[in-house]
Design a protein around this nucleic acid. Structure first.
Lengths: 325, 325
DNA sequence: CTGAAAGCGCTTACAG
DNA sequence: CTGAAAGCGCTTACAG
């Protein structure tokens, strides 16, 4: 591996000329350029990105800020990280997983996720480094979010169209926007179908299988619902178990739907009907957005919603058609 | 954000002294140190890792080489990447996802995965940069691998101990060590129980649900097996579907086991019995290994096997006890 | 079209 | 215990 200095010496030109061959080849006479290129190849020249980064005040590193509370091992996070790193690598950017707000490292840009509403103040004060948020906020900064409200709306609408009138909801009890958005989508769909939101059909809990199980058990023993919309596939897993405990056949006697679609749903029997979030794709888009912001600091703020897609499988019964497998 | 120069000026000392306060504080007089620390805080000093990297010939970047053929979106890869990045961040290292063997970038170390046997030549010729392999090889380089052979052995042994005597095997038809190792574990377990390996009970195919389905269909219509060990959960998924098509109840009439345990198995009904690979943990270990190699180039070669764990669920029936839920 | 000089923000010997 | 000098490998004006 050679440096520019060595290439320059071998080719009998100055270092600057080598630099030009790399960065602005059109400014170098063809013969010179070809001679330099030949020696670059011969000596196995590789740009020292570190030196380049230092002089151009670029680190070629993007920080992905995921608060400590969010496990990196969870499927949602893993999908995002994989998508981001895949896309960054195309532009020779590295990824640094940042677990604390303040660290003694510089970066060219930040992708932040898993924030809650109280983080807005912090967000508003990041001026030195470009930032893109995975989530949404009212602040005038770039963000991308999965349209949870619309997703929950579509799922509820689908369940209603299968003929269900008493639809339970297991919500996630976190101060995150996605949680309240999913509840709201459920409520709005009911409303648009002129159905009442019944508080007794709704439960809130932490996003773990065991609580999905417990809350479903509680709901099913007290109320008579024909379908249950769970805010996550993990909760739906618990709900399925609760249904088995109570010997309520799914989907014959009880319909269950989930939300997420990270693969947890693939092996299920009955296969789980769910709303699939394009998280890996979202990660790729976040990477593109932060790189775009770095290149174009003055572009208009870029905020976009990504749509979820309804994945119909076997866990929701059509009460109208009554055609079962 | 201030530089060392600014801190030095504010504190009335030289840049070198600031550098010492950071790197070898014990060499600086207490008063001086405290004064410098005070100004570092006040001026929000952050080390410019890029400059430090340049002068110390470190990039603070680890390359994760995953050949283009391996989708970054697959659960195995995602788990590894997440584990690696989590661990690297603790030492302020970034991760660069490398998709090509040769790229014009330097790194402090390489973690390579998804290689096949023909890549050994390439591996042997990487001398400039420390490397750790996820997989195994006969070369004297660091590696870590999941013990696929032992995992397959333990699963087969478990199935046999449930009273099964005719056990089918759906293998993965790839020139990768993990694939042949799993086959071998199956064969050795049969052998140790004094059972014959019957070729007619074995099928090979690409690792996709559809082929798991097709090969299982083929096997079940031709042969009479009471259990089926699939080389991956994805194949097991296809096998489950084939069983349903043929109206063979799982596990009552047919037992099915998988391998991987990335979460694909969690929602299944009947829940899938599988061998769980600790992939996320392996990612963390790989990160530790490469950092260790960077710090200690002369340590003895470090090669280790990680054990899989048997995750018993509901898809394999105990023919002896005959106690069913 | 090509080159000499200065500098990015640090660290590493070498002096004192 | 502290500092002046040189240098890591590049790029950016400025000359010619």
């Amino acid at each position: 591996m050679a440096t520019m200095k060595e290439v320059a010496k071998a080719a009998g030109v100055s270092i600057i000329t080598v630099s030009r061959v790399i960065n602005t080849p059109e400014k170098v006479k063809k013969e010179t350029r070809e001679k330099v290129l030949k020696y670059m190849q011969e000596l196995d020249f590789k740009t020292n990105q570190t030196a380049k980064a230092l002089v151009s005040n670029r680190t070629k590193v993007i920080h992905v800020y995921i608060p400590n509370g969010l496990e990196a091992a969870n499927p949602f996070v893993m999908n995002v990280i994989a998508g981001i790193s895949e896309e960054l690598s195309k532009s020779y950017y590295s990824l640094f997983l940042r677990r604390d707000r303040d660290i003694p490292l510089k970066s060219d840009g930040i992708i932040a996720m898993g924030l809650n509403k109280s983080d807005d103040e912090w967000l508003a004060n990041i001026n030195e480094t470009p930032i893109v948020l995975f989530g949404h906020t009212d602040l005038p900064i770039d963000w991308l979010d999965v349209d949870n409200k619309q997703g929950a709306y579509k799922m509820t609408d689908y369940i209603i169209k299968q003929g269900h009138r008493k639809i339970g909801f297991i919500g996630i009890d976190e101060n995150k926007r996605f949680a309240t958005d999913r509840l709201q989508g459920y409520c709005e769909a009911l409303h648009d179908h002129e159905m009442k939101v019944e508080n007794k059909f709704i439960r809130f809990t932490a996003n773990e299988e065991i609580y999905g199980y417990e809350k479903t058990l509680d709901l099913l023993t007290k109320e008579d619902v024909s379908a249950l919309f769970c805010s996550s596939d993990v909760l739906a897993l618990g709900a399925l178990r609760a249904a088995r405990t109570l010997r309520r056949k799914v989907p014959e006697e009880l319909s269950i739907a989930g939300f997420d679609g990270f693969g947890l749903d693939l092996l299920a029997y009955p296969a789980l009907t769910t709303m699939t979030q394009p998280v890996y794709e979202a990660g790729k888009q976040l990477a593109m957005m932060i790189l775009d912001r770095i290149e174009n600091p003055n572009h208009a703020v870029n905020q976009k919603m990504v749509k979820t897609s309804l994945t119909i499988r076997k866990s929701v019964r059509n009460l109208k058609a009554d055609t079962e497998e």
